[in-house]
């Protein structure tokens, strides 16, 4: 546990170099998406969605989606390069760290990145006056959970490949459809049944639904509990597979 914190500290020191440029994009990106989708597309959506104005309805989805995008960004190329090119993980494995420390420390850093990205989005959303509930900050917890549910299996994937062309496959066939069909921009009920099931199986929709409940102040009910459990399953299963992959590469 303590050793995992040292690994997190390493990633934070590393991040200190680039945080300015990344902070800018974490603030500018939500601003642009809010303007583009919320205000732009929203002006064509009369009467709102599910009883909420379109902007208010879409913002929680965008926050969850941002969490996932950030998690994916941190769990793919950096992981691949720490194995293949920079060999950072191998240097760590020579120190008195266990595989779980190396993996856990990096995932903790990813959670931190997800948290800051979601928080930045929440601040922008507040400026646009889309926060109507005291439960809104809970979105941050939902974001971290959703982010980890995506990050853990993505780390497993990235640690089992040796070329970044496999990452392009992940982006095209998993991340992109998930972002489009997970109820971020329109309710999943408007999708054909097959695609609706894609949303149910992949993690993002569950995070979107939870995030929306928190931001709009709706009671999540028993289905909310299912969402949380389902996301936790992704986290735990992702961790287990990632741990195996890391072990296979670091301890041979």
């Amino acid at each position: 546990m303590v050793a995992g914190a040292y690994v997190l500290e390493y990633h934070l020191v590393n991040y200190r170099r680039t945080w300015r440029s990344s902070a800018l994009s974490t603030l500018v990106l939500p601003l642009l998406t809010m303007l583009g989708f919320g205000v732009g597309v929203g002006s064509y959506v009369s009467g709102g969605v599910e009883g909420a104005p379109y902007l208010d309805w879409i913002v929680p989805g965008l926050i969850a989606s941002t969490a996932v995008q950030t998690a994916i960004g941190e769990a793919t190329w950096p992981v691949l390069s720490y194995f293949e090119w920079l060999k950072v993980y191998f240097a760590q494995a020579a120190a008195p760290l266990r595989v779980a420390d190396i993996l856990g420390g990096h995932l903790a850093f990813m959670a931190f990145r997800v948290l800051t990205a979601a928080a930045a989005f929440l601040v922008v959303a507040a400026v646009f006056g889309t926060i109507h509930s005291w439960w809104a900050p809970l979105t941050l917890v939902v974001s971290v959970l959703t982010g980890l549910a995506v990050a853990a299996p993505s780390v497993a994937y990235s640690s089992s490949i040796s070329s970044d062309s496999y990452l392009a496959i992940l982006m095209r066939f998993a991340v992109l459809p998930m972002s489009l069909f997970s109820g971020v921009f329109f309710p999943v009920e408007s999708l054909p049944v097959v695609l609706r099931w894609a949303a149910y199986v992949l993690p993002l929709w569950h995070g979107v639904d939870l995030s929306r409940d928190a931001m709009l102040g709706l009671a999540p009910g028993w289905i909310g509990l299912l969402h949380v459990v389902y996301l936790l399953i992704w986290c735990v299963a992702g961790w287990a597979v990632a741990h195996r992959c890391f072990r296979r590469r670091l301890v041979v």
Partner: peptide
């Protein structure tokens, strides 16, 4: 760590211990 400074390479690694 090619992107860290020379000194940081030593200090961050020392933390692992």
């Amino acid at each position: 760590d090619i992107e860290l400074s020379v000194r940081e390479n030593l200090t961050t690694y020392a933390r692992f211990f």
